[in-house]
């Protein structure tokens, strides 16, 4: 690749031209407050105290719902491609990894749970909490004995779809109860949002671990 470094290829010229255009346009963007005002005005009906969480779970809850769907579909797509390779490729030797994990995983679980809960009033939320939990899960997978049995397939699939299901159920219930699709009754908004966040965090954590594994479980034969 070194020989290419100084060559002015068409791709490079195009990229430079695009960069120039984008810089000119971006520096010239008019100052405008965006949606900070409307969000601040609606916060007293949002059910949660933090504006980003209110946008994610209430005002633009449909985006978050579809985004959970994207995560789940990614796992299904990967599963459709075949079974995974054994992980870890080599079992971890020595006491360091296991000793660290013994302390790290409880901390990660508490931190993740806290992040989910605190999301309603401060920085945090289902994705941040789910990511911490997912990281703990990945560490755990890396240190497991090679042929450790996975949880049953149905349980995996249930955990995977928990977030989307919770969201879809609450959203549809809102539709049937007259609050519109993806609408919450205002009095219940806080509890419903917290419930959805918890379910979503579990699904996200599990999804991230399954994405890391990259393929269907090797042991369970339920498909194909």
């Amino acid at each position: 690749m070194i020989r290419r470094r100084f060559a002015l290829s068409p791709a490079l010229l195009m990229s430079l031209a695009l960069a120039g255009l984008l810089i000119v346009v971006v520096l010239d963007l008019p100052p405008q407050p965006g949606l900070a005002g409307p969000v601040a005005q609606a916060m007293d009906q949002a059910g949660v105290g933090h504006p980003v969480t209110a946008v994610l779970l209430n005002f633009r809850g449909y985006d978050t719902f579809l985004e959970l769907a994207v995560l789940m579909l990614a796992v299904l797509s990967i599963w459709s491609l075949g079974r995974r390779d054994p992980i870890p490729a080599r079992p971890v030797q020595g006491p360091v990894m296991h000793g660290t994990l013994r302390h790290l995983i409880p901390v990660a679980v508490v931190t993740g749970g806290y992040l989910v809960w605190v999301g309603s009033s401060d920085s945090g939320g289902a994705f941040q909490g789910g990511a911490v939990l997912g990281a703990a899960g990945v560490m755990l997978m890396l240190s497991l004995p090679r042929e450790m049995p996975m949880p049953p397939a149905l349980l995996q699939r249930l955990g995977l779809s928990l977030g989307v299901f919770a969201f879809l159920a609450v959203g549809t219930a809102g539709l049937l109860a007259g609050h519109g699709f993806m609408g919450y009754p205002p009095a219940w908004a806080y509890h419903l949002i917290l419930g959805i966040e918890l379910a979503a965090a579990v699904s996200i954590a599990l999804t991230l671990v399954l994405l890391f594994l990259g393929g269907r479980s090797r042991k369970v034969r339920h498909d194909r």
């Binding site: 949606l35 409307p38 005002f59 519109g180 699709f181 993806m182 609408g183 919450y184």
Partner: peptide
């Protein structure tokens, strides 16, 4: 036009 969650754009998303 259906406002999801009852939030009128630009705050919310419409179908």
């Amino acid at each position: 036009v259906l406002y999801l969650g009852g939030w009128v754009p630009p705050l919310g998303i419409a179908l």
